[in-house]
């Protein structure tokens, strides 16, 4: 059984690609056979975050248009034998994706015995984002504690429950999880940022995981190593926890409380 998971958000720049890379890597670390697909046609980035940008020969659009086989186009991860990346095209536009074509590629991955297919959605609600979610069995909605991101994710939740194959076949909306990223407990503590509870209350969904805002995410992307592989990073560890929960394990939230400050610091600034 293959499970197709879309990582989506509506709003841009909230951490979808960062999350897709860590999710795919985390699942592979659990021994699953995983493919991660970049749906951001024209703005390929997943290859950089996965650190395989110099090994892209053929891409997703080439497979869809039968200019290359799936086998030729899947890039095997350097670190995990059971993890493959399918890059987006850098030269075409999002109209190059077709519903039939995407469906065919996903079916072929299923026939090849993949356990998970992670679909890294582009921002927005146009064709690329629509096709990334259309075939999904589950959704990870990445949201930042910020007004426009929360509003957009509600919009995406609406689309997941109506404009997907899951919904059209009468099974109801795609089951969705919220992943709250770029969370800053200090700013939440001082009333400057929406809290976990605020986001859950507005969207009416529990949060699956909370990824703190952390410099290690930037240094991981600088190096092309998904942050989940950085054992010293809070953000990486938070991804480990979130994936365990996605697979059904119960784990307490970490890194969601502000470090306690002494009176001196409170009086004279952080």
């Amino acid at each position: 059984m293959t499970e197709t998971i879309v990582v989506t958000s509506g709003k841009g720049g909230v951490g979808k690609t960062t999350t897709s890379a860590s999710l795919a890597t985390g699942l592979a670390m659990q021994g699953k056979k995983v493919a991660v697909i970049d749906f951001d046609v024209g703005l390929r980035n997943l290859d950089l975050i996965m650190g395989c940008e110099r090994r892209v020969v053929y891409d997703f659009v080439n497979v869809i248009h039968q200019e290359a086989t799936l086998k030729q186009s899947l890039i095997r991860d350097k670190r995990h034998d059971n993890l493959y990346v399918l890059a987006a095209s850098q030269t075409r536009d999002k109209e190059a994706l077709t519903q039939d074509g995407v469906g065919r590629v996903l079916d072929e991955l299923k026939a090849d015995g993949f356990d998970y297919i992670v679909c890294d959605s582009p921002a927005g609600i146009e064709k690329g984002a629509f096709l990334a979610m259309y075939f999904a069995d589950r959704a990870l909605v990445v949201v930042n504690p910020e007004v426009s991101s929360v509003r957009d994710s509600d919009r995406i939740l609406g689309l997941l429950s109506s404009k997907t194959r899951h919904a059209e076949s009468g099974k109801g909306g795609v089951p969705a999880h919220l992943l709250l990223t770029r969370y800053n407990p200090e700013r939440v503590g001082s009333g400057q940022m929406l809290s976990i509870g605020d986001v859950e209350e507005v969207l009416g969904l529990p949060v699956l995981g909370v990824i703190p805002e952390h410099d290690s995410v930037l240094s991981a992307s600088n190096q092309g190593v998904p942050v989940i592989l950085d054992a010293t990073s809070n953000a990486g560890q938070a991804y480990v926890d979130a994936i365990a929960r996605l697979l059904g394990e119960e784990r307490p939230m970490r890194f969601t409380e502000a470090a306690k400050k002494g009176l001196f610091k409170r009086m004279f600034g952080s």
């Binding site: 509003r151 609406g158 939440v188 009333g191 400057q192 940022m193 929406l194 605020d198 209350e201 969207l203």
Partner: peptide
């Protein structure tokens, strides 16, 4: 600093329920 998170939450509550 002023508690702006509360303002954000209140505004979101209204707009999200309206859009839903």
């Amino acid at each position: 600093p002023k508690n702006t998170a509360n303002i954000a939450k209140e505004r979101l509550r209204i707009i999200v329920s309206q859009e839903r």
